[in-house]
Design a protein around this nucleic acid. Sequence first.
DNA 1: TTGTAAGCGTTATCAA
DNA 2: TTGATAACGCTTACAA
Lengths: 321, 321
Amino acid sequence: MTNIRDLAKMAGVSVTTVSRVLNNHPYVSEEKRNAVFDAIKQSNYQQNINAVHLSMGKTFLIGVVVPFIEHPYFYLLIKGMSVEALENNYKLVLIQTNYMESRELEAMQMLKQKQIDALIICSRKCDWQTIEEYLPYGPIILCEDTRGKNVPSTFVDHYKAFLFAFDYLFQKGHRKIGYCIGRRSGTNSKQREMAFKEFTANHHLPYEHDYIFNHCLHFEDGEQVIHRITQMIDPPTALLVTNDDVAAGIVMCAQNRNLSIPGDLAIIGFNNQPIAKMMNITTIEIPLVDIGRKLFQHAIRQNSKIVYDEIPVKLIERKTV
Amino acid sequence: MTNIRDLAKMAGVSVTTVSRVLNNHPYVSEEKRNAVFDAIKQSNYQQNINAVHLSMGKTFLIGVVVPFIEHPYFYLLIKGMSVEALENNYKLVLIQTNYMESRELEAMQMLKQKQIDALIICSRKCDWQTIEEYLPYGPIILCEDTRGKNVPSTFVDHYKAFLFAFDYLFQKGHRKIGYCIGRRSGTNSKQREMAFKEFTANHHLPYEHDYIFNHCLHFEDGEQVIHRITQMIDPPTALLVTNDDVAAGIVMCAQNRNLSIPGDLAIIGFNNQPIAKMMNITTIEIPLVDIGRKLFQHAIRQNSKIVYDEIPVKLIERKTV
DNA sequence: TTGTAAGCGTTATCAA
DNA sequence: TTGATAACGCTTACAA
């Protein structure tokens, strides 16, 4: 492997001059520039990017922490980041945690070790304190409401969104409303639970634990929901479902069981994924790809001013309410 | 930032000794080892991993080329790779190409520049020659049949799989069989087309171009398929669908249009995704997560012997044929 | 406009 | 068991 020094020798110039040519810096005579180019061609030279990184203290790598990838919430976020990464000449390093804290720590370790320039945490298990501990080592961006904390974020106010959706259903006459989430202990889900408490309290409705359906991630999880509902003595008449795949699964299963939607059960999905459009599911649009892009932009932003980027959501009325 | 030299000074030992302690090498007295540990604690020292990489000529990063991530074929492959990456202490660098050749080249450039130790190409646009050109710079692994070529791979013989599925449908009495694919120009789809030609020729059936449905990637694409079929004068009576999401979409749409499945239209999906089980779709199981793992193993395998890793598939009979 | 030389933070060789 | 010191391949003051 020929290196920059060999190149300099071949071209009869200094290493600095080669470096200037390589990086398109000014102050190189046409003559020498060409000499360098010739040498590059002859030698089939290739920069060792690690050396560049070591020298510059930067890798153009952004770490992305996700629990898993096989879920629209995460792969749509990643999709958005990918677009932005491409445009800014960065690459994404994927860190799949499966919600194991040790892997989240590993990711932060990478930041500390300077293997990545910044870290985007899409969802986490670890506590706030841990994150703060790693803050000095580089930008950490979160996809959750961090207002009041010293970490930039792009997020949806799920408390607000849920309250809005509950009210909408209430106006439509529903009094027994439940919801489906992926992971009860998540930060976002805690906000949703707060909204649920607030809503039921405001309207003097009972706070029904049974109306909360956990572990709803994919289309096929809709089956469990319908199954449980049909077994209930006093089932909910409306459901907020935090992703459209699950909503679609619910709608499909309901059909098979002759449960009328929205007659017997009203459904509001989330995300406005293509499947919601196709199946005519009323949904709350969350621009996940866009959120991914913005998360990434935070990650590479130079100015150290912390930005909390709340993303508004929008109700798309279709046929399931 | 304190570095290894500072550490050496603090501990009153040489840089070499510090390095030995850091890497758990033998030949360090307990006394000096402890001195180093103390220094590490006091200084809050953190290795700069880029320096390590430069020195070792290795990054423990594996590049993964996918056109996009929001598709089970790709996210399940990635999922498998992630598992393996974790176990072997590697990280995955995601390169989303959207089938732009320039991005594929960029990925191979990363290999040449030694930013990644190996490259896994899950699907590609570029031609074979381009890949061969980059072969000298590091391991490139493909997820397609590379037998006879000098590149390791893990793959499904889609020619064989299709032929098998066609025969199965033929035995069930079908004479008008079509299929749905994601991208007609892909290597795998070309194999499938060959199988289709072979099958129709063998059984003296007409080779119907109309029976090939392109651009079928997601659940919602099933709608188009059903739409086109209902418009046909002489529609197929059975369909091979290269992914279960699309198969599910087809089944669901058919229900809505009072098309009986399998009465009017038999369906065989691919992958055996959870949705296929839930919707009782007959499918050809392809262990994508496993394939992802094996692809990764090739990528980090030391021995230079080229391995072609054909993965067998399995018919899962359910209710759509 | 050019070049020398000092980093960047490690690992690895070799002599002691 | 230890430690100088030379790589690794690049960028960037600073001097000329």
